[in-house]
Write a protein that binds this DNA or RNA. Structure first.
Length: 469
RNA sequence: GGCCCCGUCGUCCAGCGGUCUAGGACGCCGGCCUUUCAAGCCGGUAACGCGGGUUCGAAUCCCGUCGGGGCUACCA
């Protein structure tokens, strides 16, 4: 049997990391088994779904490198993968289920149902126990599925699962406006598209018996289910906006790399074994199996993601790194000629080592391109506001002015002589020069920075700092 | 309230009856390196929620308990 899996985001928000992880696990499973990965858009909630969210979701999946074999943009033999274009089909199934006695119309008011629910709660019973067919058959209203039977199934991750008949309520499958609910649409699609494995968040575990019931009523064998552990925030609650960034797009904007993101997400609930933490997606594809996924929820840890991102940045080819950083620098200081950009490229490997998030690299490059250097106030106070700094700046200015060659080696050789001559510690000499040239006591290595900045700008900055003392 | 899931360092993951005085990673704390910051290297901190069983032997199996979480819509 060929594996067919899917991810089915609702376009009611940007791609959430939880959905992204579900997508990743489905993708890994498809790639591992040589199966098919499908992207379907669950937009039955017409009011809250938007085309913008849909594009964001698809773009984020692309960005992560989770390519799909069938889905919204591709179309193909299975029709449109957007649920809003299949409402007729869902309606047809709903009515057929009514005709077969598996579902029924219900036009009771929500007040009426609320009373039933409240009473059930007070009696300590599941509300579903009370929401059963009305005494007299109706011919309008919503369509409910008659769910009065126990359901057992094997969850690939959680094992034996059993739900009693009276714990499953007669849930709505078709709203009174004729649109399908999630339960119906999702299930019908899984059937129609021949989905073999449904790997989704654990929040849907208690809805699964409903989906199995619908599937059986359609005379089809249900797919295998695998309920993934939820992603939590630091407070142990389901990850949501109040925990900070939750959309993949936000992480992209913060400067995370897709490979780091995928690596990190893969680790949230699964591991390739051998104590491996950093691994590429091929290794994950080779080793992934849904049944190895962890049962307990995982807390999303931005610190670890950030560390991992640093690992990936350091592993980049320096030219590739520079190319990623360039637009960020240009956003900050305006567009640069290739000639001017060469200054950064010279420094790139040193900056790369010091970067965990792409924008940090742009900050480190800033001193190369601004006309009026802003001095970091803390740095200035700590380093420049002390005795003897004027001598240091004068001496370095003199020494550098006399230099014939403006390269790292010559600059280093010249400046290295200063501490002895001035009878001061190396730090006391180099830190003022650093602040003068880069504006901060934290910067890429000094000699390389001075070399990259160039002769005249460097000398001018030393003079400017001297004036400001 | 009801139904369901989960429970190994602060966090992520390894462990699937003996090799566990519990391993790796992030974080944190020291140290080395060093002109700053990083990176790198070395070392340290820290966990099987609790109580019963089963067994010669349990982090690993069973039961209970406590704790956490999810669902309980004409949202998905």
């Amino acid at each position: 049997m060929t594996v067919r899996v899917r991810v089915a985001p609702s376009p009611t928000g940007n791609l959430h990391v939880g959905t992204a992880r579900a997508a990743l696990y489905n993708w890994l499973y498809a790639r591992h088994t040589g199966g098919t990965f499908i992207v379907r858009v669950d937009d039955t909630d017409v009011a809250r779904s938007t085309p913008e969210f849909e594009s964001n979701i698809l773009a984020s999946l692309r960005w992560l490198g989770l390519d799909w074999d069938e889905g919204v943009e591709i179309g193909g033999s299975h029709g449109d993968y957007r649920q809003s274009s299949r409402f007729d089909r869902y309606r047809q199934v709903a009515h057929q289920l009514v005709a077969e006695g598996a579902a029924y119309f219900d036009d009771r008011s929500s007040d009426e149902l609320d009373i039933l629910r409240t009473r059930a709660q007070q009696e300590g019973k599941h509300p579903g126990h009370y929401i059963r067919p009305p005494d007299e058959p109706r011919s309008e209203g919503v369509i409910r599925f008659a769910a009065n039977q126990a359901v057992e199934f094997q969850d690939l991750i959680r094992g034996d699962m059993r739900f009693d008949g009276d714990s499953i309520d007669d849930f709505v499958i078709l709203r009174s406006d004729g649109t399908p609910t999630y339960h119906l649409a999702s299930t019908v699609d899984d059937v129609d598209y021949g989905i073999t494995h449904v790997a989704r968040g654990e929040d849907l575990l208690s809805s699964t018996p409903k989906h199995i019931l619908i599937t059986r009523a359609m005379s089809v064998e249900p797919p295998v289910y695998a309920h993934l552990p939820l992603l939590f925030g630091a407070d142990g609650k389901k990850l949501s906006k109040r925990h900070g960034a939750t959309a993949v797009d936000e992480f992209r904007q913060m400067g995370f790399l897709p490979d780091a993101m995928v690596n990190y997400l893969a680790l949230l609930g699964w591991s390739p074994g051998d104590d491996l933490t950093v691994f590429d997606r091929q290794l994950a594809v080779d080793r992934f199996d849904l049944s190895d996924v962890q049962k307990n929820p995982a807390v999303f840890d931005l610190d670890k993601l950030t560390w991992l991102n640093g690992e990936y940045i350091r592993a980049m080819d320096p030219a590739e790194f520079a190319a990623e950083v360039r637009p960020l620098v240009e956003d900050a200081v305006g567009s640069l000629t290739d000639e001017k950009w060469a200054a950064f490229e010279a420094l790139a490997p040193l900056v790369q080592e010091r970067t965990k998030l792409l924008p940090e690299a742009a900050d480190q490059a800033r001193f190369l391109y601004v006309d009026d250097l802003e001095y970091d106030e803390q740095s200035w106070n700590k380093v420049m506001d002390r005795e003897g700094v004027s001598e240091v700046l004068d001496a370095s200015l003199a020494a550098l002015t006399a230099l014939d060659e403006w390269d790292t080696e010559s600059i280093e050789a010249t400046l290295r002589r200063l501490p002895d001559r001035l009878e001061r510690g190396a730090g006391k000499v180099f830190q003022p020069i650093r602040v003068a040239v880069t504006g901060s006591s934290v910067s890429p290595p000094l000699f390389e920075s001075v070399a990259a900045l160039g002769r005249n700008p460097s000398l001018e900055r030393l003079r400017e700092a001297r004036r400001r003392l």
